[in-house]
Design a protein around this nucleic acid. Structure first.
Lengths: 141, 141
DNA sequence: GCTTGACCTGGAGTACACTCCAGCCCCTAG
DNA sequence: CTAGGGGCTGGAGTGTACTCCAGGTCAAGC
């Protein structure tokens, strides 16, 4: 598979793939007679995993450390396992943090909705609080 | 409260607070006689909310759009509610994506652990692990 | 033979979000 | 009265991760 198809398959743009190769995140693939990169299944699996790591917020330097360990062979398996465990913990923490924020967002949205339905509600309380500035008492911010 | 304490309270570095003020994300606070910024409870609430937005990955330009709408008063409440709903959806999607990645990580980690325990010998579990408490070969939590 | 399109390289440029000065002012404690 | 600490401004610099050329090669189709 050539680079355009590989880009489609992995979700990385072509330029990013070449960039990753340049910095050592992806091994230089085979080339065809024209000098074009030819990717195989193993490259695809690795790039897909890289994409996961990136999605979960792993930095390039961390991915590089992992890639370098991987290149050294089976001896670094414990090291790599440890990297993944540490990263897993970070991602789990991130998920918890996001869920926390989600509930704050829900509260806020509910406040807005209460505010809006009160405004056009059965009691027709139009107060015309036109206040350019920040002099409002507590409201949704 | 002065800027150092405000920074501690909000989690934003001092420089970031001044930067946010410069770009219009935070309103210019009152000043004391020496020209130092003095922040109050309203500012704190807003900055804390901004911190949530940032934590959930909202870009500065989006936060700015929200802040500008907020500055225009109650008339923009529906607009702001909509922004938050859209953002909430994005965050929820992100959480789902991360959880998906978590399971991939778990699989990978389990593979490493199976590999490593196979290498040590199936019924000869040696404890040369520098990771006490997590040596059992099984999928991580 | 010529055009088109995919791919090549090395290197410059971009976007985002800060982060860090230099040089200055003000207040308080010793 | 001076040293230290905190704060001020405007502007330059940083880190990360790409992203985008310019100028060239190659293979296939008309």
């Amino acid at each position: 598979m050539r680079i355009a198809e590989f880009a489609r398959a992995t979700g990385f743009p072509v330029d990013t793939l070449r960039y990753y190769e340049k910095i050592g995140l992806i091994d230089p693939p085979l080339r065809d007679s024209a000098g074009h990169r030819i990717y195989g299944a193993a490259e695809l699996r690795w790039a897909e995993f890289l994409h996961r790591l990136r999605t979960t917020g792993m930095s390039i330097s961390e991915m590089l450390a992992y890639a370098r360990a991987r290149a050294e062979g089976d001896a670094t398996a414990p090291e790599r396992a440890e990297m993944l465990r540490a990263h897993r913990a970070e991602v789990a923490a991130r998920v918890a943090e996001l869920q926390d924020c989600l509930s704050v967002l829900d509260t806020k949205i509910a406040t807005y909705e209460a505010m809006m339905s009160a405004k056009r509600g059965p009691d027709h309380a139009r107060s015309d609080t036109r206040d350019p500035g920040r002099a409002r008492p507590q409201a949704a911010e």
